[in-house]
């Protein structure tokens, strides 16, 4: 089976600062793939490169069989409709209500009558576990957890097959984070999603991530499922999984 995302030998440089030095990884269809690493290890940058917000200096990234380095305008437009992105701070349009935020892409691309559109939007709102009244609220009136859910609903508006999440549980309380993890699992089940998420939430890594890659020293230190990754003797992995918090977490298991 062809991988959904294939990254090979990617090099990224900001001025003199080398961020990625030959990164390669594969995301298979239907899995929840975690991108891990400390601050500044370039995981968000890698995510931005996968969703066409940034271009690496060298290497190859292909998403759904399309090479991102040599993409035509039409292909890019098509590709952008195949994925949804949840930004770290939500990035909801502050001048639109939640319902308008979710509906804006549908309105632009699906050309459906307003009543059907409204029904789809309401269904998405309910699907991500937001209360009905949230539809008419503006982003400024939402709590942190609601913002995450609303932007997840927006990311899912076009029923994409591919979902990118940038630190989905950061800034949520443990209960909210757990509920959000559960939601992502449910949605994957329901909508056949492939999920790529940047995270350093140990709980998420233990409970929902199928496979992961750990970034450090400008390279991929380890890739695979959790056991495989934990067996790697690299110091960064030692610190991450066998540090105080990691040890406590691993005692609880799934």
């Amino acid at each position: 089976m062809n991988p959904v995302i294939l990254v090979s030998d990617v090099v990224t440089r900001f001025g003199d600062n080398l961020v990625h030095d030959g990164i390669s990884l594969k995301v298979q269809k239907g899995e929840i793939y975690g991108l891990l690493g400390g601050s500044g290890s370039g995981k968000s940058t890698l995510l931005r490169e996968m969703i066409l917000l940034q271009r690496p200096q060298a290497g190859e990234i292909s998403v759904l069989g399309h090479d991102l380095m040599s993409l035509g305008r039409k292909e890019a437009a098509w590709l952008q409709r195949q994925w949804g992105v949840l930004f770290q701070a939500g990035a909801l349009y502050s001048s639109l209500t939640v319902a308008e935020n979710i509906g804006i892409k549908l309105k632009e691309y699906a050309h459906l009558p307003n009543n059907i559109l409204g029904e789809i939007v309401r269904m998405k709102i309910h699907m991500v576990g937001l209360p009905d009244y949230a539809a008419e609220l503006y982003p400024a009136q939402l709590s942190g957890g609601m913002i995450k859910r609303a932007s997840l609903a927006r990311a899912l508006a076009m029923d994409p097959g591919l979902l990118f999440l940038d630190e989905p549980t950061s800034g949520l309380d443990p209960i909210g984070a757990e509920a959000f993890d559960k939601l992502i699992l449910e949605l994957r089940e329901m909508l056949d999603l492939t999920v790529v998420m940047v995270t350093h939430d140990l709980d998420s890594i233990w409970t929902i991530v199928d496979r992961l890659a750990v970034l450090g020293d400008r390279k991929v230190i380890a890739e695979g499922n959790l056991e495989e990754v934990m067996r790697q003797p690299h110091p960064i992995i030692e610190q991450f999984f066998h540090g105080e918090r990691g040890r406590i977490r691993s005692q609880h298991g799934k």
């Binding site: 699906a110 699907m127 029923d159």
Partner: peptide
């Protein structure tokens, strides 16, 4: 079929 299709169908 996706979730939007289901909504339309159910409508």
């Amino acid at each position: 079929i996706d979730s939007a299709g289901i909504v339309l169908f159910k409508h």
